[in-house]
Design a protein around this nucleic acid. Structure first.
Length: 316
DNA sequence: TTAGCCCTGAGGAGCCATCA
DNA sequence: TGATGGCTCCTCAGGGCTAA
């Protein structure tokens, strides 16, 4: 069987892989032989994903592997460090990506509180008005029903309400300030091909306040993209739990679910083919790390859905 | 055929913020 | 300062699934 030496398109710095000719997406080209050299074609990678690659050579696996190593060596280490580290692109060989940042939780919390303030400033002010109006109506209702029982407890509630209203006005003022400062109102597709769009500034804010781990980011995106009703009473994949005889919960909307999971995986640089020039053992190790990462994300989200359901049941 | 992984559900631990 | 509650993560169980 023939093999192809591929230079991945859109890779900076350049990366190379040796792939079987069967991995050419266009099956009709597989008999074209050396005519393929120099052409840019779709290559089928793991899980059926396709990536564009320029065909540099065709031949035996061993000789092409040597050539790939030589070409990779020509790319300077300095260039890799400067361009790869900050973006964690497909060519990032390091698989030692910490799932949790080592920052102390105490510092995180103080940071997060500031970020939450920013997030709240992006919430539609009419929504907050509605909440406060409900709160106010609730107080009025209680006042009518228990007119004879208006104790100091009621006064405390009124005090808390006034305090919340002051906070709300402050947030509203900050919200308007930020609106004036930024024009980032455009939507961006969360994950390529899903069609699920989110506001750029909102997505950035959620990322900021979810810096502890990818699991937290995934959960916060679920909170943003699914309603409380959707989060309760659904499981992540709707599959039967064999450990229990109970009926499986229905699957949560797969389009939004997959968009979130795909986005998280992409953000951590795990949706890309393995870098060129690594051994089979390293390739297997990388594959394990990727599987482990996805498992952690889906596990956390699955936990999250159960927790939401449990909270809902406790409340009713 | 079989080892390893997947997935859901349950229970509990650890950390942190809030409150009395 | 201790109690409490929320959030997140970890571990385990157990049958199905899948690749070797």
């Amino acid at each position: 069987m023939d093999y192809l030496l591929i230079e991945w398109v859109d890779e900076d710095p350049k990366t190379f892989s040796v792939v079987s000719i069967d991995q050419l997406a266009d099956g009709g080209l597989r008999s074209s032989g050396r005519k393929l050299i120099g052409k840019t074609e779709s290559i089928i990678w793991t899980r059926g994903k396709e990536f564009l690659g320029r065909i540099l050579n065709i031949g035996g696996c061993d000789e092409l592997t040597v050539e790939a190593d030589e070409r990779a060596a020509q790319v300077s280490d300095d260039e890799r460090l400067q361009k790869v580290e900050p973006t964690r692109k497909r060519s990032n060989i390091s698989v030692d990506v910490p799932l949790k940042k080592q920052k102390s939780r105490r510092n995180e919390s103080s940071d997060r509180s500031r970020r939450i303030g920013d997030i709240l400033s992006h919430i539609d002010s009419s929504t907050i008005e509605g909440i406060l109006a409900d709160d106010s109506n609730q107080h009025n209702l209680e006042g009518e029903q228990e007119e004879s029982n208006e104790t100091t407890e009621t006064n405390e509630y009124k005090g808390k309400y006034r305090s919340l209203r002051t906070k709300y006005r402050e947030l509203k003022r900050k919200y308007k300030e930020l609106l004036n400062k930024t024009n980032e109102t455009a939507d961006v597709e969360l994950y390529e091909g899903t069609g699920l769009k989110m506001n750029v500034a909102e997505l950035a804010s959620i990322k900021m306040m979810s810096s502890q781990s990818s699991s937290v980011l995934a959960r916060n995106l679920f909170r943003r993209l699914f309603s409380a009703e959707e989060l309760t009473g659904h499981s992540l994949y709707g599959k039967k739990c064999n450990a229990n005889a109970t009926l499986p919960l229905p699957e949560i909307d797969p389009a939004r679910r997959d968009a979130v999971i795909g986005y998280i995986i992409k953000e951590d640089g795990f949706d890309t083919p393995p870098p060129a020039g690594i051994s089979i053992a390293e390739r297997k190790s990388l594959s394990k790390v990727r599987k482990r990462f996805k498992r952690d994300i889906t596990k956390s989200l699955s936990d999250f859905l159960r927790e939401e359901s449990r909270k809902f049941q406790n409340a009713t």
